[in-house]
Each structure stands twice: as structure tokens, then as C-alpha cells.
Design a protein around this nucleic acid. Structure first.
Lengths: 344, 344
DNA sequence: CTGAAAGCGCTAACAT
DNA sequence: ATGTTAGCGCTTTCAG
């Protein structure tokens, strides 16, 4: 069965301590015995037991990641990039997708604590007050936390600068001559997309058409974009552009408009958010705002490792940081920039 | 700092053995002490250390999952469903996305073995012969493996019946009157999509147009569908339908045809494969073949747990199973079924 | 019903 | 340079 360090020691005719030494490569070992032991390791196909090791070292080299839903491409990319970023530092990720179930959320949290993760990354979750309690546990076990949720100010936080991103998106539309810009967003308040829109209008000394700001309860997805746009169209409220909460909402909006005989971007310009894979494949190719996911992931990994390596004292002293990342406007077809280049 | 069982024992005025008993709920403990201990646990916010526990129990309640790429929605869904399926059985998943790097592949394998996963699920990976070696390790550590790759017959395997799925897809096109059906697939041989196509033609006593079978080296994605279709169109090889390796390839093909002034499905019918989220949102909505991912995940979890619970003997005796799942043709707009209902 | 003690596989002093 | 030993936090006999 599974070989242990003891078997390797026997096979090599040394004590387990010496085997441990070559395994960890720290203490010096005579070259000849080193080789002898290495041979035994190879012959037995020995792989050290990380769990046993972490009991002593008091570190599992594991980072927990809790995301709201993987069907949202953003979180998949984030996981991928985080995995890439932590790998060279010797950490593995364990992933929990809550699918927006509060129970799952707490269950993962518990599971991660039981597994003694060295650090925890949490996306936008834990809204309910009961969760505060769960999060206290993290403190009790002094597990470093970094969030990817701008709303949660209790921890270090990395997040795209959505105010800037949204502002740029809307500025772009305004520059293209649009004044009646519909905003399709979720019901969470305050919403940075909305703030960005208002900011852009302010910067241009323009008045926001409040009737075109639509906040929708429930899931923010294709269906929502589709339905909301249909409603908007039914209200006979004239608008020449749509700024959607995310790309998938934008797809829904475009679909709805096509069904009503409106053309994008000729009749209505559309800007999305996130730059999912499909954005460049969709027809019309979607103008959107891209998050620097790779940068976020790397900085996060960097910071996380720094915190992990601090002692209790330092952690207390270190101030909670909110690091925000520049968003990038990606101009494609759906905003009609090309055909409007000659001015409004 | 982190409370241990010892602290709980002290706080409750009992021995650690008794605390362990209430933790595991197996042995019987006097109700009064049970309560006393439970109170101590709650007060200290104690969470048992799973790693310590697994050392003794010789089980980590962890399943490793290795997938080729998460940017392919199929694998995301599979992860989600597997997580759901294993959760009630008390297992957590740890995920490795190799992004088609053989190094990563081996690294994950090693990492999972070191973490002493109770079972391993592997997608279509490990094609290179060097990997055989890595897989031997699994045997050495007698870690149960179930694959999601029909090519790998050395292990238990769960997989969609792609021959049936592809056959149905092409049968559908043939029924709609198509004879010149282009197939866009990868270069892996034997390819079930191709087999399915041939099978469908055979069943209808028709001749396959070999020139329309395109096997492409490299990644199978939107770009591939787009480029291949352009080439096909350039060759002036008449075809009235395309069966694409997967939905994203189909999107690329449709895009290419639209650019050449061809309409889908009026001029060319298209059938995809996988039924990704976007398939129903795309315009035209994609006719495609859906995998019963949830069923696959559940059966897999079931089987995995059965194997884990076997002893060495039983495992040897148990024959390797290949369980295949019925695929489902989802008819939407891109095949033109609706407008061709009245016959060819 | 509960406690004492052995030990899971490993690392880290402390000896030699 | 290497071996001996004491744990890490927990479960599980074996006594009592």
C-alpha cells in the first residue's frame, strides 16, 4: 500500500530523520546517502503525505476561494488566473461555488476552516447578517481574508474600479452623441454602473434621464436584459443607447431589439461590461468594459502571501487596503463608434 | 489561537477522548456531559482539524478533479454538477485546470496524491506516454480513478454516447433534406462526430461527401469554426449544412457565413454540440446536442463512492465499466427545421 | 460511560 | 552528518 517515510528509511538503511532531510532539502546530508535515499524514494514511488506535514508546519499551502457562481464567466477566469498566480508560490486553490445559496456559503466556509486553509478569498457573498457570525470564525482561526467584493470593507480587497469603468463607457456614448442612455442594472445599491453614468453626465454638464435608469430585482442575466428591454421598448420611452450591467444582459437587450426591428448599432448603441469570450464573437461584436483579471489575481496572490507570512502582531498593525484596478473600454461594433466617427 | 480538542476537553472538564466521542457521535456519551461538551465547543468556536482526522481515518473526504480547460463551459458545468453530487456524500472537490499543459497535468496529479485524495476524476488528458508513468502512481497509492474520457479504457469511465448524439444530429439534417453536410471537427482520431455522421448516412443508404469532412489540427474553438468555414466557402464546394464539433465552432461558422452573405438556416443549416448557455441566446438560436451532465455527474459520484468503500480485494475483482449516457438533440432555429417542415 | 495511552506520517530540536 | 525523540491534533483500542 501507500509507502511511508518509514519504508523509505528502511529501504535506504537510514533513519526517517535523514529521509526527511533530503525531502526538505534544508539540512545538509552527505551526497552518497542523499543519492541512496533518492533512489529508494524513486523505487518506492514515494510521495510525502502533505497532511501529515501540515500538522507540524502549521500551514497547508492551500487557499480557499468562494465564488457566487461559476456559470458567470468572470469567476471562471478569476479562478484560472488565481490558480496561475498562486501556483508558483506553492499554493493550491480549493474552490467553492455557492450558486448564491447562503447555506452552501456557510458550509464551504466551515469546510475550509476545517481544512485549515492558509488564506481565504471571497467574492461577493455573505450579505446576510447571520454570516457575520460565520466570518467571526475566520478571525478566531486568524485566517487571512482578501475579498473581491467592493462592498465588504472589513477586509483587504481587490476590485476593478467600476466607477471609472462605467464612467468611461458612458462618456464614450456621450461623445458619440447619445443623450438618452438607458441603464440596465441590478437592484443592489449603491450601484457603480449607475454612479458611473451619473458621473459621466455630470462631467458633460448634461441631465440624466431618470426614467431610463432601470433597476431590476432578481438575477442579472440574458433573460433580464431581454425582458427589460422589451418593457422599455413598450413604454415608448425614446432612447438611443443602452449601457448594460454586463455582457450577457447586453446580449439579451440586443436580441430583444432585433426582434422589435431595431438595429444595433444603427438604431440603438449598446455597451456591455466584462468582456466575456462571446463579446467578440457576438454579432454585432460588443463594445464593453474589460476587467484586468490577470492583474487583480496576481496582486491578490502577492498580497495574500505577504499577509500569510506576517505574524499575529504584524497582521494587526497592517491597515486594511482596498486596491482598485483600472478598467479598460474595449470598442467594437455595438456602440457604432466607427460609423459615427464623423461626429454626431 | 486556533482551539484544539485539548482546550475543549479542559473547558468541559473531561478527557479528549470523550470530546472526540461527541464530535463523531458514534460511541454513546451521557447526555449531561454531551451537553457540557457541546457548550464548550460552541463557546470556543471549535472546528475539528480535518487533516489530523484524516491521518487516522485514512480518508480525506476529498476528490480530485482534473479538467483540460475551464474556459470551455462544459467543464464548468461538470464541476458544478459534480460538486453538487458529491456534497451530500460528504466529499469536497479539489479542482485542477490544466489548460492543456502536460506539466500542469502531472503537477496536479502529484499534488493530489500528496494530498491523499480519496478518488480522482480525470477528463480527457494524459495522452502522452510519459503520463502513463504518472498514472502508475495512482495505482501504487491505490487511488480510485474514474475518467470522463471515452478514449481511456483503463479506468471506469462515464461518457456521453457521442456516436448516438452525432448520429441523431446528422439524421436530423438528412431528414430535413440535406445531403451535402460539412463536418467541422478536430484532428483526434477516431472522432465520434465523424463516426456518427457516417453512421447516419449509412442508415439512410446515402453516400458521404468525403470532401466535406474537415479535420483541423490545433484548438477547436470559435476561430477554428470561422476560419475553416471561410476556407470551405472559398473552395466553392457546395454544401447545405454544417455539423460542428461544438457550439462555439458553430458560432464561428455562422459568423463566417454571415460575412459571406449566406443566411442561416435559409442557405445553410447548422447543428452544434454541447448546448452551452449561449446556444439559446445566439441568433439564430442554435440547434445542438445536449449532454446529460447532471446525470453523468450523479452516476459518477455514486460509482466513485462505491469504489472508495470497497476494500483492496473487491476493487481488483470489480470489472472496469464504461457507462455511456444518452445524448439529446435540442432543435432550435439554426437547422431550419421549422421552415422545412413541409418537406425538402 | 469515561479516561489513559498508542499511534497516524511527518518535522524539528536535541544528541551523538 | 545522522539518529533519537517528542510531539502536531486527532481517533481508537483497552481498561476501568
Amino acid at each position: 500500500m501507500k509507502p511511508t517515510i518509514k519504508q523509505v528509511a528502511e529501504a535506504a538503511g537510514v533513519s526517517i530523520a535523514t529521509v526527511s532531510r533530503v525531502l526538505n532539502g534544508k539540512d545538509r546530508v552527505k551526497e552518497s546517502t542523499r543519492i541512496k535515499i533518492q533512489e529508494a524514494i524513486d523505487r518506492l514511488n514515494y510521495q510525502p503525505d502533505l497532511n501529515a506535514r501540515s500538522m507540524i508546519k502549521k500551514e497547508t499551502k492551500t487557499i480557499g476561494l468562494i465564488v457566487p457562481e461559476l456559470m458567470n464567466e468572470y469567476w471562471v477566469q478569476m479562478f484560472d488566473e488565481l490558480q496561475d498566480a498562486f501556483w508558483p508560490k506553492g499554493y493550491s486553490l480549493i474552490l467553492g461555488s455557492t450558486n448564491r445559496s447562503a447555506d452552501r456559503e456557510r458550509a464551504f466556509l466551515k469546510s475550509f476552516i476545517e481544512r485549515r486553509v492558509d488564506g481565504l478569498i471571497i467574492g461577493p457573498c455573505f450579505d446576510t447578517p447571520e454570516d457575520e457570525e460565520a466570518l467571526e470564525l475566520l478571525d478566531r482561526y486568524s485566517i487571512p481574508v482578501v475579498t473581491l467584493d467592493p462592498k465588504n470593507r472589513a477586509y483587504d480587497c481587490m476590485v476593478g474600479d467600476h466607477l471609472q469603468g462605467a464612467t468611461e463607457a458612458v462618456q464614450h456614448l456621450i461623445r458619440l452623441g447619445h443623450r438618452d442612455i438607458a441603464l440596465l442594472c441590478g437592484s443592489s445599491m449603491p450601484d457603480t454602473r449607475e454612479l458611473g453614468l451619473r458621473n459621466a453626465f455630470l462631467l458633460n454638464h448634461l441631465q440624466v434621464n431618470e426614467d431610463l435608469i432601470v433597476r431590476v430585482e432578481g438575477p442579472v442575466n440574458f433573460q433580464m436584459g431581454y425582458q427589460t428591454t422589451k418593457t422599455l421598448l413598450g413604454r415608448k420611452m425614446p432612447f438611443t443607447a443602452i449601457f448594460a450591467y454586463n455582457d450577457v444582459v447586453a446580449f439579451g437587450a440586443i436580441r430583444a431589439m432585433e426582434e422589435e426591428g431595431l438595429r444595433v448599432p444603427e438604431d440603438v448603441a449598446v455597451v456591455g461590461y466584462d468582456d466575456v469570450q462571446m463579446a467578440s464573437m457576438f454579432r454585432p461584436a460588443l463594445t464593453t468594459v474589460r476587467q484586468p483579471i490577470r492583474n487583480i489575481a496576481r496582486s491578490l496572490a502577492q498580497l495574500m502571501v505577504e499577509i500569510i507570512e506576517m505574524d499575529e502582531e504584524e497582521r494587526k498593525r497592517a491597515p486594511k487596503k482596498v486596491i482598485s484596478f483600472q478598467m479598460e473600454l474595449v470598442i467594437r461594433e455595438s456602440c457604432g463608434a466607427r460609423m459615427r466617427q464623423h461626429g454626431e
